[in-house]
Design a binder for these strands. Structure first.
Lengths: 117, 117
DNA sequence: CTGAATCCGAATAGATACTG
DNA sequence: CAGTATCTATTCGGATTCAG
């Protein structure tokens, strides 16, 4: 699992890059914006992502203190994930990135950019 | 080299994640904000990055049309890199991410978060 | 100065199977 | 329902070397 070392904390942009480097990190945070969500509910939003992989990513984000995990002691188990204050600080960025992604997609389609498949 | 396929273009946030997934992508774009910059000059801003790796990253970003490469036909060679319009569209996001990174670093230091080394 | 080619090791993600 | 453990395939970045 990725960990931060002190040299990672010398450059803000590098820090951000590393913390958000997971393949699904951004989308997880995006989905967590709407409040606490259960594991399986979260999982349903992804295409081609196994629960094992999602677990890993969530633990990763938890270790970076972007995500909070709340386990309810009941049967069947119930676990909810939400954003910490640090994680919520990413709202504007995530929104901006989403807007940019939309524009990028538009541009790709307009320019008939080369796509595989 | 990473390429986009059509299924990558179905979700804006996933698209953004993929396009910016390179370990140095964000910082490269950040550095290119100040206008065209030559290869070696760019390289000097990185610690622990070989020219071969920087070349790869730049080609990657060029293929995504975020970066423009301008080669001057002279000896010794001179090549300048700059952002395309698509790349410039990331300004606000990059700035936001940089601010967030700063806060994150502050928080890590305040909370004495565990760091390797 | 800039970049291509190759090899290699580390890091990831995904498949699968098993547990409380 | 949620999570763990193991294995494997692939990706990616970095080192090194060679070239225009």
């Amino acid at each position: 699992m990725i960990e931060l070392n002190s040299s990672d904390l010398t450059c803000p942009i590098t820090t951000a890059q590393k913390v958000l480097s997971g393949k699904w990190a951004l989308k997880i945070i995006f989905l967590l914006k709407d409040g606490p969500i259960r594991f399986n509910e979260l999982l349903r939003n992804f295409d081609g992502l196994t629960h094992a992989s999602l677990t890993k990513q969530l633990k990763q984000l938890e270790s970076f203190r972007l995500v909070h995990r709340e386990a309810y002691n009941q049967v069947p188990p119930k676990v909810e994930y939400s954003l910490t204050e640090l994680g919520k600080g990413l709202y504007p960025t995530i929104n901006g990135l989403t807007d940019w992604g939309r524009e990028y997609i538009e541009d790709c389609k307009m320019n008939g950019a080369y796509l595989r498949e």
